[in-house]
């Protein structure tokens, strides 16, 4: 708030997200949060791996999973990681329009991913895999659902940022916000790498 000071033009620093103490705090704090999230997802993966044999009378992994669908979802999320990388490169270049454009692309890919995931859950449900069917079902839906919730939160977060800052230009305040949102998005992709490997590929292969 600039109630007793004139608005002064700021020049673009090489790393606008880390140019202020606030920005550096956000950047570091958010990384540490991701360190905690690693354990959070580790616990979910462990639970799933411990319980994935507990299918009882319900369908098991090999009856349900389709590699083609998972492959498409993986490619979508991987590409969205690249678009968010481009967004950050544009931010450092001072090209605000480019930042916004690539972030919108990320949001669009995120929504597409969510759409596939909802379709996937719908299919499984109709194939007889309810949330309470078996320990495998519960732990599968919890793990993949928590990841999906992260995607949904990321999509909404980035959308809020994009609308709020659609015409302000890059500032020392919003640069760390975009940067942390991008970190979060990459982290979602990191988790998905383990999900497609451990849940889907191992589910079909072993």
């Amino acid at each position: 708030m600039a109630d007793h000071q004139a608005v002064e033009k700021q020049t673009l620093p090489p790393n606008p997200e880390k140019a202020t103490l606030d920005g550096r705090n956000k950047y570091l704090g958010f990384w540490f949060f991701l360190g905690g999230e690693t354990v959070l997802f580790g616990s979910l993966f462990g639970t799933y791996l411990g319980l994935r044999g507990g299918v009882v009378d319900g369908p098991g992994p090999a009856d349900l999973f389709h590699l083609d669908l998972v492959f498409i979802m993986t490619m979508i999320l991987l590409t969205s990681s690249l678009t968010s990388v481009f967004a950050v490169i544009n931010m450092k270049r001072g090209n605000y329009k480019g930042l916004l454009m690539w972030m919108w692309a990320t949001v669009a890919l995120g929504i597409a991913f969510l759409g596939f995931e909802i379709y996937e859950f719908y299919e499984y449900y109709h194939a007889g895999l309810g949330f309470t069917t078996s320990a495998f079902a519960s732990s599968f839906y919890t793990l993949v659902g928590t990841h999906g919730a992260h995607v949904a939160f990321g999509v909404s977060w980035i959308t809020v940022l994009l609308i709020r800052y659609k015409s302000t230009g890059l500032t020392l305040t919003n640069a760390p916000k975009f940067y942390t949102a991008v970190l979060y998005w990459h982290f979602i992709d990191v988790v998905w790498v383990f999900i497609f490997t451990v849940v889907y590929l191992l589910g079909i292969g072993g």
Partner: peptide
Amino acid sequence: LFGATYFAVDFGGNIII
């Protein structure tokens, strides 16, 4: 609250988790 079965042994769950 939602009837999940991680800890229900008769549904393939495991209490040691």
